[in-house]
Nucleic acid binder design. Structure first.
Lengths: 186, 186, 186, 186
DNA sequence: GATGAATGAGACTTCATTCAT
DNA sequence: GATGAATGAAGTCTCATTCAT
């Protein structure tokens, strides 16, 4: 009930925090709902996030950044195959543990330019890692670079189909990815 | 024994046919919508299908049956690996080409007993095929039998993430499944 | 709270009646508002009238019909000038006494085909009456037939500007129209 | 005496300029909107113009002044009829070419005293011109002096009903006014 | 004086479901 | 059995206005 210039940032953070909770609960994001839970006016939420997508992407952004960062490290790994495998593992595990990320990754279009940028970077890293692994003879040439992200989405999705409890999902994800990686290994 | 019964059947068929159209169009199933297109009262649709899920499952049932039937044949194949691979290919391709099937397969709970029964049978067949392939030494032991269906859902999902046009989805599905199968092969 | 097939018509009538009240009060038409006053669900109002315009036009329709009917009689009047003058008087007075009609007449586009049809007919009659009056040498050629309706809207509008109380509007309208007619008379 | 005062004036001018643009575009005046386009805080706009009406009237004021000025000249014209006709033409043309003026002229109540004053002066001039024309025997006695402004509003409105494109409105306005003037001429 | 974030009432619209005929 | 009008909760979003800084 006491909003100020400085609190604009606080409010924004609060909204994102509430959204994160909802996402983790599996509750579908609704701007009204977020407003109520954050104890803010609807208008405030709309000012900060004009659409559900914008909010969801904001929620997912930190993870996207983490992935991108780790990906850049991976590019420096001498072992091309290990680098690729590690990166894909990261991608899958992140999606399995974060529904927001899973949704954003699977969506074709983005609400925020920042999201597009990060997704592009993540894609590019995958492209490079795959190319290196292929050039080294470590990876078979069957898969295209644009297959990588969809496949990681698919594997994450498979774990959601497989079991309701989040705990069970991680081991399942590992099994699925390992099998796939073995199939990709030359 | 009344002429009504014949009408009822006709109505039901019509509803399912319309629902199939909608599903193929990608239009979200809405019972009101179905009623309008089928030129029937909403009440009639509700009488036949109390929920959207019931209707969707009815739409998907023929495919589920096809899969089960083919699966039974697969069980008679001498080549355990070929049988398993063929079956999984069938599963994936069916889901890629039929959004109704994809949804029903991925859903944890069912509205109709018939659906549960068919899904169970499809699962059982998978279990047997995998067991045989494992016993023969054709399949690695990493994957559990309950992984099969989720994985096929995941691959189908990956193709939806990969591209909008239905045409592009089938080749993608093949790539994904082939890689996975290679990883599963002993 | 007891709606039936037969009452569909009754509800529709009720909605129109309420809308008429609101229009006459000068309250801006809002579908929600109408629903509340008619003691009906919002959905019911929306079913009958998808937009405010559709409702407003329905409210105005009877008057449009009256005008058209009278216009057809006017075409049979031997005195071309008297016919034209009478018709225009009718047009103005109707608009002055009915805000719904005034709005619908002034609007360029229509929600209901019926409205378009009636407006066209009213326009056509004006065209014919003006042509006849001109041919007879009774009317000067300055005004085009497409000027008639806008001018009547303008005169009605002038009376709304002139005074708030509906009672004062009619005499004002007569003054305005008489002056205009004198200017049009050859 | 503080530099702020100069800034305040600049801001005010800017707000009015932006409002003028919006009005000319046909965009409905919204104080938030104005603030954004003027690159000022909403609060600033509210400080200068507490309501939309106040702003709209400020936008219209220069035209009102022009009309008043020209009117004063008209009072000195020896030809009473020519003076009246010229004045009314001015009134109509101004309204046809300026939506802000049209709205302000048609509105019964004013937000700013300055507006009331100018409108009164414009009205008075009309009264005097009409009286003179009547006394000279140039104008018929049918119309009252309070009819003049509403009628000009009505004619302007008629041109808005008649056509969407601003270009077509002026000739139409001339036709309408000429006919009316002929009817008023003795 | 200027700022602009916050507010929240309220308008709009959709849709799953019921139930009288 | 069939019909389809009615319902109204619930979600969407806008915008005039306030007020702490």
């Amino acid at each position: 009930m006491t909003p100020q210039r400085k609190d604009a940032a606080r409010n924004s953070d609060r909204i994102v925090a509430v959204a994160r909770e909802l996402v983790d609960e599996g509750t579908p994001l609704q701007l009204n709902d977020v407003a109520r839970r954050a104890e803010l006016g609807v208008g405030t939420v709309y000012r900060h996030f004009p659409t559900t997508e914008a909010l969801l992407e904001t929620v997912a952004t930190p993870r996207l950044e983490t992935i991108a960062t780790h990906g850049h490290h991976a590019l420096e790994d001498d072992d091309a195959w290990r680098a690729l495998a590690g990166y894909l593992t990261l991608l899958v595990e992140a999606q399995v543990s974060d529904p927001a990320l899973a949704k954003v990754s699977a969506h074709g279009s983005d609400a925020l330019p920042r999201t597009t940028e990060l997704k592009q970077r993540i894609l590019d890293i995958g492209t490079q890692l795959l190319a290196r692994a292929r050039d080294t003879g470590a990876a078979r040439p069957d898969l295209a670079d644009t297959d990588l992200v969809p496949l990681m989405c698919g594997i994450a999705y498979a774990t959601y189909v497989h079991s309701d409890t989040p705990t069970d999902r991680l081991p399942a994800a590992r099994r699925y990815l390992d099998t796939l990686l073995r199939g990709l290994h030359a």
